[in-house]
Design a protein around this nucleic acid. Structure first.
Length: 457
RNA sequence: GGAGCUGUAGCUCAGUCGGUUAGAGUGUCGGCCUGUCACGCCGAAGGUCGCGGGUUCGAGUCCCGUCAGCUCCGCCA
């Protein structure tokens, strides 16, 4: 623990140095602020002077840093504590630390260059080398890896075979192959034939929990001989020609195993991506070291569960220049691309950012696309819109989840391992026992009345 | 809200098919040794086996419930 904290300190110091070298200045922004428009639940703080009103703890300093840009702070950074009231995970704590960066008169490439330098410096101080950072398009990442946060140290890739199975007699493949939003993929695994039947059964159970109906597979004994050249429970449904075509496209040779996923693209990606990583771990074929990649070309919006549109990144993200007019017109909203980028390493999203909208009209259009009309927009983000109207420079930035970076550099599985006094999965502090009830007088002073849950007496 | 794993000495953990006296390492304490530095040697203390119930002649071990920690899904960038 102590060595982890020392490593964290060195990384933080290196990140600061890299930023200051580039002319960024650290500005502290308020912790008592307004509920942010991003998705997570806010932690609320009652305002004694205004009973019935609440501050929110910031989920990120997003709006403040944009105001700083408008206010002439060209290069801002902050080692910012952020708060999100959601259920915990190995990679999530209710409060976490973000390296928050914003710069004016910058292109996406400028921000990525600066951001990459900061990450490289921090990792170097943590004893890990961030090598070349390739760029990968969002759509391509989903196609090849089933996720927008792929682990590139695993040399397994999804191969689309939708066109090959459209007419085959195997309904599990043929039905999705006929649908627009679906995909049928093969995942060839070199030397995968060494997986035992038991292991394959375990993998089947693994993907079932992630939404798969089952897990079809095919062991290649001798390529080019149709069903006779493979061992597979589904070969007889596919037919010789289809089997050969799949094996050929998957470039599978003798001793290789091919897994399949078929169904709605979202579902297939949802289990084939994790399956790919699981195979990497199970087979011991994850290459050591850091495998960073910039993911670019995100959609501006995505369709939520309830059918409403939501920002992929956040509502202040700039559309690609080519999509400006469409956003202003409110057209083709789901097809619009954003000038956003994520830094991913070893299958973990370390951080991301975007160019921001710096014109009031475009910002109103973006909010309108999310169902926020102008009067509401003025009420909630009036200060931002005012600033944009007065004139804000083009700007953009990014934020890293610093705890994840530190955990990765330290080779530790949980960010809890690099945080001093982390909270348990239920959000309790083991040392102080916070959170705790407060006495009635305190509540009265704040204008609050507690509605005890089942745990209270 | 759901699924799973774990809970045994201060700490890390082992404990076989249910079998009578629950172990190891480390730490603590006492003694000895001593140019030590992850010292060495001898000895000692330290246990509601998370908690409650059940099955059994007998439960750390099996069953049910419950609590806690953790991992994952949902949720969350």
């Amino acid at each position: 623990m102590q060595s982890a904290l020392r490593l964290r300190h060195r990384m933080l110091r290196a990140a600061r140095a890299a930023l200051e070298e580039r002319g960024f200045i650290e500005v502290e922004t308020p912790m008592l602020t307004l509920a942010t428009p991003e998705g997570a639940r806010d932690f609320l703080v009652p305002a004694r002077a205004q009973p019935g009103s609440f501050y929110a703890l910031p989920q990120s300093p997003q709006l403040f840093k944009q105001m700083l840009m408008a206010g002439g702070v060209d290069r801002y950074y902050q080692i910012a504590r952020c708060f999100r009231d959601e259920d915990l995970r190995a990679g999530r704590q209710p409060e976490f630390t973000q390296i928050d960066v914003e710069m004016a008169f910058a292109s996406a490439a400028d921000v990525m260059e600066a951001g990459e330098a900061v990450a490289r410096a921090a990792f170097a101080a943590g004893g890990a080398e961030l090598g070349e950072v390739p760029r990968l398009d969002y759509a391509e990442a989903l196609r090849r890896f089933g996720t927008d946060a792929p682990h590139l140290g695993i040399e397994l890739e999804l191969v689309d075979v939708k066109d090959l199975v459209a007419d085959c007699g195997f309904k599990v493949f043929a039905a999705p192959a006929a649908e627009a939003g679906s995909r049928v993929v093969a995942l060839p695994v070199p030397d995968g034939a060494r997986l035992s039947r038991k292991q394959i059964d375990d993998l089947t159970e693994f993907v079932r929990k992630l939404g798969a109906g089952g897990l079809a597979w095919l062991k290649v004994d001798e390529p080019g001989r149709g069903g006779a050249g493979v061992s597979s429970p589904i070969a007889k449904f596919l037919g010789d020609a289809v089997v050969d075509a799949i094996v050929d496209r998957a470039k599978a040779g003798a001793g290789d195993l091919v897994f399949f996923g078929a169904g709605p693209a979202r579902t297939v990606n949802g289990y084939m991506g994790p399956l790919r990583e699981r195979l990497g771990a199970d087979l011991g074929i994850v290459k050591p070291g850091l495998w960073p990649v910039w993911i670019t070309g995100f959609p501006l919006f995505e369709r939520g569960e309830e059918g409403s549109l939501a920002s992929m990144h956040h509502p202040f993200t700039a559309p690609l220049p080519a999509d400006r007019e469409a956003l202003l017109a409110g057209e083709r909203l789901e097809e619009l691309g954003s000038d956003a980028y994520d830094l991913v390493a070893n299958g973990v999203e370390l951080g991301g950012g975007s160019l921001r909208i710096h014109q009031a009209g475009l910002q109103l259009a973006a909010l309108r696309a999310l169902g926020i009309e102008e009067d509401e927009a003025r009420r909630k983000f009036g200060f931002l819109l005012d600033a944009l109207e007065v004139g804000a420079p083009p700007h953009g930035g990014l934020a890293y989840g610093f705890d994840r970076m530190a955990a990765m550099a330290a080779g530790l599985p949980s960010i809890r391992d690099v945080i001093a006094f982390p909270k348990t999965q239920r959000g309790q502090c083991p040392f102080t026992q916070a959170p705790q009830p407060v006495d009635a007088a305190t509540l009265r002073e704040l204008g609050l009345r507690a509605a005890p849950g089942k745990k209270a007496e």
